[in-house]
Design a protein around this nucleic acid. Sequence first.
DNA 1: TATCCGACCTGTTGGC
DNA 2: TGCCAACAGGTCGGAT
Length: 289
Amino acid sequence: MPELPEVEVVRRGLERWVAHRTVAEAEVLHPRAVRRHLAGGEDFARRLGGHRIGVPGRRGKYLWLPLEGTGVTGQAILAHLGMSGQLLVQPHSAPDEKHLRIRIRFTDALDTELRFVDQRTFGGLSLHETTPEGLPDVIGHIARDPLDPLFDDDAFHRALRRRRSTVKRALLDQSLISGVGNIYADEALWRSRLHYERPTSTLTGPRTRELLGHVRDVMNDALAVGGTSFDSLYVDVNGESGYFDRSLDAYGREGEPCRRCGTPMRRRPWMNRSSYFCPRCQRPPRAAS
DNA sequence: TATCCGACCTGTTGGC
DNA sequence: TGCCAACAGGTCGGAT
């Protein structure tokens, strides 16, 4: 499931294989894949044609392809992979994937096209105006991610202290810190020895900095091996899977011994998903059980 | 205003 | 063998 490291791997692939190419035509094969483009699939396809693609950007789990020659403000194709989205650079002759949703062809003689493939259709592409900073306007509410040099650790700590919430909810709140999903939240909390229900208002400055350090470490570790992949749902633009699932310490390890203390790891239903933790290393706060 | 939580979506797995 | 429920989870928008 794509979180920040996986999206960054895809962004780098797009920079290598798609940047500086000019769109010949786009084909929308499933309307839900462009549902965030309010003017619809036909409009999306028509407005892409003839534009050269700039260097891809990313914030958190969103990535975008700037379109050159789209006026003073500029426009960009915004992409979110959702749960199962893939952006693949494929030869024209490759058979269509079962869940191919959007195809973009280019004017050059290179024998490849860009495909958006998405089984569960939680992801999608859309076209938006960009801000003076080059950010698509609809993701202005998304916070900087922890790998962004301009991410403000102290401001993040102050925001946590103001919240009447719990630490894992805060990590998943993309308006506070972006790019963290269920997998890396559990990994960073395990490394920090923090229970997922720990109230944010009880975190000290040093504890927040330690948590942020672990968030960055786990993301950088995943990035170094091409991201996490449990199955074929997450792949880079060439269809290759990452290897970080072999390094996970918490996520998906219910019943297996904690790698620190040997206690069997637990899974708890949490907000229609799961939280994995060590009951000994990550003690629940007094109010929770 | 802040926080919480259901809906969306489809393939896989396990139980009966 | 076939049916059905549970599960995976990022984001949005309605409810509290």
